[in-house]
Design a protein around this nucleic acid. Structure first.
Length: 971
RNA sequence: GGGCUGGUAGCUCAGCGCCAGAGCACACGCUUGAUAAGCGUGAGGUCGGACGGUUCAAAUCCUCCCCGGCCCA
């Protein structure tokens, strides 16, 4: 308590003009109204760094139940954007709330470092220096990639920490760390050793000029003129089921389908060289296909009058024109679905010199990628020469012929065309088809075609050996993954469905890439058998070497180092492919959790919804394949950040919001508040107006804290009052705290934070600022310090300060710290006090009082009946301040005992209330209060002026002043 | 084109079968002892569209369409 002020000497009359301000307890605090966040936040960060806050948090929570949010690694390339900021802030809030709810939330942030984008950056630098990548030793190249990733990890770490994200930054993980590379190789070898790793063929985009595979982003599309061919596939066996003709008219013989034998299915392709690789024809199940008889043809047409061909009805006019058919009869129309099971001959069946190499059957399959935009409505399927073809082929057990070599020429085994280059294959293929009688027409088309970004040469899809993890078969990875999904908590729950349908439909996982910057697939293949070597001793030598030297050891060591004395290196081929980066990040659980002795599986994975196909997916498959279960107990997803109109952000549209700009202009706490004010399970929006709104919300929170701090000035434990002795108003506030507490605890459990912080804001604005604080200002400012009413209020304010600071700490991590230290660490520098070392407060059971809450709900609704007529009196200039009002309040029998008249005047902040019985819903009457205004508390009361010595004060204020205990605010 | 998802006041969000809600912003007023603050009052929406369906009753269920977003093709 501050120095008491002596009133005027007893007996002397007061000066009516006296200013009583210095006898009133006005809020007093060092906590400024303006946040000044962009300047202050870095100072607070520096303080945390200096006191080793992270270390102290860990030490303080030792022994508590662990909570592991396993960090999905962002790619170590470029500055943070708003999406990564959202993700990390949300993670930080979840971690902090769990920490403050009593867990030991040890968060280890990490990075994804390998992969194409960094390779490209380094290659780009080479090109700028006119250097050839292939001339650089691979270890040098990898070292440059490593340095590049390292640089960006540092940049992003700084940016994340500026966002207030707390974690084990010194112990961060990176996929390119040596132990990580060793662990990743170890995971690959788990699949190798348990037999779930096989080598198969798969088409990839290939440049015959550079003799290399290319990734999607290395491909440029340019116009290219290709030869086109229309080819007959003679039907040798009609579909198995009798089907009804769908042409209107007389009902045909249901067995007409047998007529299809002898007819031909016609395909159209722009890549004649893929015909030798054909293994099927696909039709669209929903399309109508016409069986026609050719009646007349133009000169030079390869069509034959009298022959029967099948073509999609929608494309019939175009095909007739292109093939020179001038007259025809539609015999039947049939759904594509009904053609399934038709067996055709390969168009080169029986060709001279082919030696029976094309005599295999060609099935007709159904596929939803077939369109009727161009062609014939039938697609020729060469599983080695197209993504769709490959997947359809796998699903139907087709083989993947390896027809083309790395230089773009046909392999020696390919009948008729061995050694020919695919770029020049259109003529020989056409000639052979003409000889076989199956070419229906030829043409040319100019279309957009993939080319190499480097050589500008046209590319081909070519079957190449790749490494796969099977989804089905003895390891039942698909089935186990689906079981694991069923056992996982998804927030929101739709995520289960989304990842589930992907897992259910996906093909085998191709984990090999023909690249340099990554972890090699550490496998030796026995040359004679083509089988991978499965020897735990060899695996052990590999992972051991990687542990200290990293994956570079694979490139720098002779194979004998790994093969040991049991094998002759000459008998083995060392695989030089690297593993898919998704396999790497899918293995982080192994080296970040398991290897470090943290609990496994993780409690939570938390990423953007795109990671259903990405990290959640690969982590699930990796863990199921090696451990049989998911590496996470729960998966939380958030949406994407769009602009204020809900449009995707793009530099060209100029609608981007960068996190560092928000930090510099508003402060990080505003950005964090934005995250928690949004529904993060859906897409979110951000922009100038939305940020401005967040700044408004922040101001209210900040001013609430400020007023609490100011009104608590000088609070001493001696003032504290037990709940039982408090007025109902105070007990109602404490009850509200129990309600909010329940909301927080539920959110901590469920990870569902939507609406929680808006509700806290609502509490501050509506329950506290506009109601409780407004009412209690009179007692806090004007009562003597030992007044029970004031003591009760200050006790509640003490609780409010602790509850609000701790609740806000996970989100407004800087502001809450400031408000906490403003009270508990006023000495500032060198002090180790931090709100982040606190736990959430636990409300005593006796604070909860539903009956009281219901009663005060009624009181507040009656209060609203009073404020309306007061407002009307203001309009007519009868009164200004509500303290100038006297109210006549009619109450019905149910309400007349709620409060007494004095309490009503307190609650309504008026100078007097008269209660009258309400029998017919009579309105509240407001009149100017009679009496004079107390110069100290401004209430208008009849007693003011009745005391000759103290003519300008009311009784309460006279007592307060004469007690000699009212303070003069510290200067 | 397919899978998942969203479209309720200027903004952020509730409501998800039975009279359109909250906070913020806005307007007006009060206060000048939370003052680059605080209080009060008020205005504002045919709930994306359908002179579509189901129902006694639809923002809420169904169908179609339009506009976004993520992932595939």
């Amino acid at each position: 308590m501050n120095d008491a002020v002596t009133d005027t000497p007893s007996g002397a009359r007061d000066d009516p003009a006296r200013d009583y301000r210095d006898t009133v307890f006005l809020p007093q605090t060092s906590f400024p109204m303006r946040g000044d966040l962009p300047r202050k936040e870095p100072q607070i960060l520096a303080k945390w760094e200096a006191m080793d806050l992270w270390g102290k948090i860990r030490a303080s929570s030792a022994g508590r139940p662990l909570f592991i949010l396993h960090d999905g690694p962002p790619y170590a390339n470029g500055h943070l954007h708003i999406g990564t900021a959202l993700n990390k802030i949300l993670k930080d809030v979840v971690n902090r709330t769990r920490q403050m709810a009593g867990f030991d939330a040890n968060y280890i942030p990490g990075w994804d470092c390998h992969g194409l984008p960094i390779e490209w950056k380094i290659e780009e630098e080479y090109r700028a220096k006119k250097q050839d990548k292939d001339a650089v030793p691979i270890l040098d190249f990898r070292a440059e990639c490593r340095a590049y990733a390292n640089h960006w990890m540092g940049v992003q770490a700084t940016e994340f920490r500026r966002l207030g994200v707390e974690g084990a930054w010194r112990d961060r993980y990176a996929t390119m760390d040596r132990p990580s590379e060793a662990a990743i190789a170890g995971e690959i070898c788990k699949f190798l050793l348990n037999g779930a790793l096989y080598r198969g063929l798969r088409p990839v985009m290939w440049s015959p000029v550079e003799k290399t595979a290319l990734a999607e982003a290395e491909i440029e599309y340019h116009d290219h003129t290709s030869a086109t061919i229309w080819v007959r596939f003679p039907i040798v066996k009609a579909p198995p089921q009798p089907v009804q003709d769908i042409v209107p008219g007389p009902m045909p013989d249901p067995w007409w389908m047998s007529e299809l034998e002898g007819a031909s299915v016609v395909i159209w392709t722009t890549t004649a060289w893929t015909i030798p690789g054909n293994r099927a024809v696909a039709a669209g199940p929903e399309f109508d296909y016409a069986v026609i008889r050719v009646d007349a043809v133009a000169d030079g047409s390869l069509a034959r009058p009298g022959e029967k061909i099948v073509i999609a009805e929608a494309l019939l006019p175009a095909v007739l024109k292109d093939t020179g058919i001038t007259a025809h009869t539609v015999l039947h129309v049939v759904k594509g679905a009904d053609l399934a099971g038709t067996i055709m001959a390969h168009p080169l069946r029986g060709a001279e010199g082919a030696d029976g190499g094309y005599d295999q059957d060609t099935p007709l399959l159904l596929a939803d990628f077939v369109t009727t935009e161009a062609g014939t409505g039938f697609v020729h399927i060469a599983p080695g020469h197209g993504e769709d073809d490959f997947i359809l082929g796998r699903a139907n057990g087709l083989d993947v012929p390896e027809t083309v070599g790395d230089d773009g020429t046909f392999n020696a085994w390919v009948p008729l065309f061995a050694g020919a280059h695919v770029y020049k294959a259109a003529d020989p293929v056409s000639t052979a088809l003409i000889a076989a009688g199956t070419l229906l027409a030829r043409g040319k088309i100019t279309h957009s075609y993939p080319h190499s970004w480097r050589s500008k040469a046209p590319l081909i899809f070519r079957a190449t050996p790749q490494w796969f993890i099977p989804m089905d078969g003895p390891h039942r990875i698909r089935e186990k993954a689906l079981d694991a999904i069923a056992a996982t908590q998804f927030v929101p729950d739709q995520g289960r469905n989304r990842i589930g349908s992907m897992i259910a439909a996906r093909p085998d996982w191709c984990i090999s890439r023909q690249r340099a910057w990554g972890v090699p697939i550490t496998v030796f293949v026995e040359k004679q058998t083509g089988e991978p070597l499965r020897d735990p001793a060899v695996v052990g030598r590999i992972t051991q070497a990687f542990e200290t030297e990293g994956a570079d050891a694979w490139y720098s060591s002779p194979p004998s180092r790994f093969l040991g004395n049991d094998y002759n290196p000459d008998d083995f081929e060392q695989v030089m492919d690297i593993v898919d980066v998704w396999f790497e990040s899918g293995s982080t659980h192994a080296f970040v959790l398991e290897k470090r002795g943290l609990p496994w599986p993780a409690d939570l994975y938390l990423e953007g919804s795109d990671q259903h196909r990405g990290w959640f997916h690969s982590s699930l498959l990796e863990a199921v394949g090696t451990r049989g279960v998911a590496p996470f107990k729960a998966v939380l997803t958030h949406g994407f950040v769009n602009d204020e109109k809900g449009r995707k952000m793009s530099k060209s549209l100029g609608n981007t919001t960068a996190p560092d700009e928000v930090a510099d202009k508003f402060g990080v706490d505003i950005l964090r508040l934005w995250v928690m004010s949004s529904d993060t399970t859906e897409d979110l929006r951000i922009g100038p107006e939305i940020l401005k709104q967040q700044a408004e919300l922040y101001r209210r929170l900040r001013n609430t804290l400020r007023w609490v701090l100011g009104s608590l000035d000088g609070f001493s434990e001696a003032e504290r009052m037990p709940v039982e002795q408090m007025p109902e108003l105070e007990r109602w506030v404490l009850h509200r705290l129990t309600e909010l507490d329940a909301r927080f605890r539920a959110a901590v459990q469920s990870y569902d934070w939507t609406g929680v912080y808006p509700e806290l804001h609502n509490f501050c604005a509506v329950d506290l600022s506009a109601f409780y604080f407004d009412i209690r200002k009179d007692a806090l400012y004007c009562d003597r310090p030992d007044s029970p009413r004031r003591r009760a209020a200050r006790t509640v304010l003490d609780h409010l300060h602790r509850y609000l600071c701790t609740w806000l700490a996970p989100v407004l991590c800087f502001t809450a710290e400031e408000a906490w230290c403003a009270r508990f660490a006023p000495s500032s520098s060198g002090d180790d006090t931090s709100v982040h070392l606190e736990l959430f407060q636990t409300p005593p059971a006796n604070w909860h009082d539903d009956t009281l809450a219901a009663k005060w709900e009624t009181i507040r609704s009656i209060r609203r009946r009073i404020t309306v007529p007061i407002e009307e009196c203001r309009k007519t200039n009868v009164i200004g301040s509500s303290l100038q009002a006297a109210v006549e309040l009619p109450l019905n029998a149910d309400h007349e005992t709620l409060l007494d008249a004095a309490a009503w005047s307190e609650i309504a902040i008026v100078s007097s209330v008269t209660l009258v019985p309400d029998t017919d819903g009579s309105p509240v009457k407001v009149t100017p209060a009679s009496g004079a205004k107390c110069a100290r508390c401004w209430r208008v009361l009849p007693v003011v002026g009745s005391n000759a010595t103290h003519p300008s004060r009311c009784l309460r204020c006279t007592d307060a002043v004469e007690s000699g205990r009212v303070c003069k605010p510290a200067a």
